[in-house]
Amino acid sequence: MRHIISVLLENESGALSRVAGLFSARGYNIESLTVAPTDDPSLSRMTIVTSGSDEIVEQITKQLNKLVDVIKLLDMTAHPHIEREMALIKVRVGEAADREEVKRLTDIFRGRIIDVTQQTYVIEITGEGSKLDAFLEAVSPFPVLEVVRSGVMGIARGDVALQL
């Protein structure tokens, strides 16, 4: 099963490689991993999307907790939660009709066009991964030059909060 695990860890050089190294050394799946410092600059927050049987995911959380740089973690999958991913997509839109159609699709998906040239659009779109997939499918008739996806971020709904 797919799991989203959010991790608070020390914002220290090497902390990221400890997590990445753990996953590769133990052969755990890693679908995406995002990380950035939090409002407290001594802390980083990481979101890992992984998959595995219950036993494996239990080991993953235990092994993550065992890393000395990891302070706390939360398996979002156990709670109602929100996940979001952002994509930046560059599409070639040479013809006026193409421009119109891509603009229309972007609106339907509540995306935004954030860069415009004679030949190209850059589209920003956020949502769950499946929405991003659907949008990419929708624009696939046009020449897509580049796709940048952020990887998934997650947060629990309601009172559940991953904090110190």
Partner: peptide, 11 residues
């Protein structure tokens, strides 16, 4: 003492 030793190989 190490939670990751528990139920790693045997439930």
């Amino acid at each position: 003492v190490d939670p990751s030793s528990i139920s790693k190989n045997v439930k």
